[in-house]
Design a protein around this nucleic acid. Structure first.
Length: 349
DNA sequence: TCTGGGGTCCTAGGACCC
DNA sequence: TCTGGGGTCCTAGGACCC
């Protein structure tokens, strides 16, 4: 989806069309969730601190996020996709892979999907078509917004040979920097780099993996059912908190929110963890695995408290989180071969 | 410009078992 | 006596994605 959250906001406030619009929280530490393409011209992107965004474009319209609304619109869009295509893999609220391999004319099918999303949901999207997920994903990003790009693997290699390795999803800023230090600044160079050099610099698994990515090789299949493995609640404080007395009530509240959600969905997990980010931005996690899965508030709360007391942060804390992992699959697993339904998508979301 | 919230996957080391 | 070779589970940190 193109600038999904912004597009949904513009839908209910059409007067904002073609204006710089920014969806962002209001706190002192908020970051931008989505910026309209007009706002991006001012240098405002996802994860830009909201404070900085205001300075970059004081005239932009700032809107607090309304995730319930975005989830509802996302369900609408995904329902349209499922009406056109049997196998759909939902990736977050605004993205999906469609298996077009059963169509005689996949491009025509994708055109119909694009038109239907605009007609039925009133939202624009960009589509990429390729022989695997990696090519399709990069193609979909290549001409946003309102893009429609079809590429073979070889065409993708050619078209992006001069681009930064960071173009590839899975190659992030750290890896880009390490590659650069090794004299590799483009995808073309990475694709032609010696396997031995990459293996010695990045290890026997990551090295070859990077080379495959640069050649746009990808054999991942489309997974129509995703089962969550963990769930968490976390919060960043407007001002750092100091000491267990200040932190414990927050930890209790997060535990309660998390357990309510898990109980409502009848999901339980064996591992209970906390996350603590200190004022120096270092992040620390502590976890404990139990014999039996649980979503019981008493258990989660007391475990989280104990983990926090044992960690006993000696510096001001800026973020605190609670997590339950090792979730059982019983509650959300669909039968083998079960068709993707909107209900399942809701669970996935 | 000091950096959200919710996730996934990978790695490395240690415990433990056969 | 100075010590194998798996395999699994768990913890903690980190990179990365939307």
């Amino acid at each position: 989806m193109d600038a999904f959250y912004v597009s949904v906001e513009v839908q209910r406030r059409p007067e904002l069309r073609e204006l710089p619009v920014v969806v962002a929280g209001s706190g002192p530490r908020a970051v931008v969730t989505t910026a309209s393409y007009e706002a991006r011209r001012f240098g405002i992107f996802s994860a830009t601190p909201a404070e900085r965004a205001r300075r970059l474009c004081p005239d932009a319209v700032f809107i607090p996020p309304d995730f319930d609304l975005y989830r509802a619109r996302s369900r609408d869009v995904m329902a349209v996709l499922c009406e056109h295509v049997e196998r759909v893999e939902v990736v977050g609220l605004d993205e999906a892979y469609l298996d077009l391999s059963s169509f005689d004319r996949p491009k025509a099918a994708a055109r119909r999907v694009k038109a239907a999303v605009r007609e039925r949901a009133g939202l624009g999207c960009s589509i990429g078509i390729g022989p695997n997920k990696l090519v399709a994903k990069v193609a979909s990003d290549a001409e946003k917004p309102d893009g429609f790009v079809v590429l073979s693997r070889e065409q993708a290699c050619e078209r992006f040979a001069a681009a930064s390795p960071g173009l590839i999803p899975g190659i992030g800023p750290k890896t880009v920097e390490r590659l650069r230090q090794g004299g590799i600044e483009t995808l073309g160079q990475l694709a032609n780099a010696s396997g031995e050099a990459l293996a010695s610099a990045f290890g026997d698994r990551l090295g070859p993996h990077l080379a495959r990515l640069a050649r746009f090789e990808d054999d991942r299949s489309i997974e129509t059912v995703r089962i969550a493995k963990s769930e968490s609640r976390e919060t960043t404080f407007d001002a750092d908190l100091r000491g267990l007395d200040a932190l414990e009530p927050v930890l209790d509240r997060l535990s309660q929110q998390l357990c309510e959600t898990l109980a409502r969905q009848n999901r339980k997990g064996r591992t209970i963890g906390i996350k603590v980010r200190l004022d120096d931005f270092s992040t620390h996690t502590r976890a404990r695995t139990r014999e039996e899965p649980t979503n019981d508030l008493q258990v989660v709360r007391s475990t989280a408290r104990d983990l926090l007391r044992r960690f006993d942060p000696q510096r001001p804390v800026r973020l605190l989180g609670v997590r339950v992992a090792g979730l059982d699959e019983a509650a959300t697993a669909a039968g083998p071969g079960a068709p993707a339904t909107v209900d399942q998508l809701e669970l996935a979301l």
